[in-house]
């Protein structure tokens, strides 16, 4: 059913030190991805911790090392959804807004703060593709793989999200 055999090589080629280095290099992108789903730092910490351990356990299934980033991100997304499923309620918007405002308030220009706020107001359906593609710079193809959707679906969501953002941000122009 799953091409386990064909996946062994890449994982075996990466030792603990290499794995650690790759994870640390990816940490910020992982955090942004997790935050865009969970909108809560404590949950992000849990999700990232779980994802790192899961990725290490599943390393043997990684088909090709160049897909490491997208592969780990996909695992992280699954961990995030696991946490969401365990929640009784989703994080209220006010709660995550307070979380977001603190780190951003000093360094951010008002425009970027506003952009960040508007991104986080997007439904997750649009928010995650936006973050993965535009914030983290993953290609449409990579984003599609991470979200397990088609490239056409990614483009569709990006287009629609852009329109929503344009509409909301354009109001002040």
């Amino acid at each position: 059913m799953i091409a386990i055999e064909g996946c062994k090589k890449a994982g075996k080629q990466m030792d603990k030190e290499q794995f650690t280095a790759r994870i640390l290099a990816l940490e910020k992108r992982m955090y942004h991805t997790a935050f865009s789903i969970l909108r809560d730092n404590e949950d992000c910490a849990d999700a990232m911790q779980n994802a790192v351990l899961a990725a290490w356990r599943k390393l043997g299934t990684l088909r090709r090392p160049e897909f490491f980033d997208t592969w780990v991100t996909r695992i992280l997304i699954n961990e995030c959804y696991q946490i969401i499923r365990g929640r009784k309620d989703t994080v209220p918007y006010e709660e995550y807004e307070a979380v977001c405002a603190e780190p951003a308030s000093e360094a951010y220009s008002p425009e970027r703060q506003e952009l960040f706020d508007e991104i986080m107001r997007l439904g997750e359906h649009y928010r995650l593709p936006i973050v993965l593609h535009y914030v983290e710079g993953y290609s449409v193809k990579e984003t599609a793989k991470m979200l397990a959707i088609t490239q056409a679906a990614v483009k569709q969501r990006l287009l629609r999200a852009r329109r929503i953002l344009k509409e909301r941000l354009g109001g002040r122009s």
Binding site: T20, R29, M30, Y31, A45, L115, F116
Partner: peptide, 20 residues
């Protein structure tokens, strides 16, 4: 990411290091 999104908070970073 740093342009728009927050930096990795210390508790999150510690969680990652702990996992590693």
């Amino acid at each position: 990411g740093k342009d728009v999104f927050p930096e990795v908070p210390a508790p999150v970073h510690r969680a990652v290091l702990d996992a590693l």
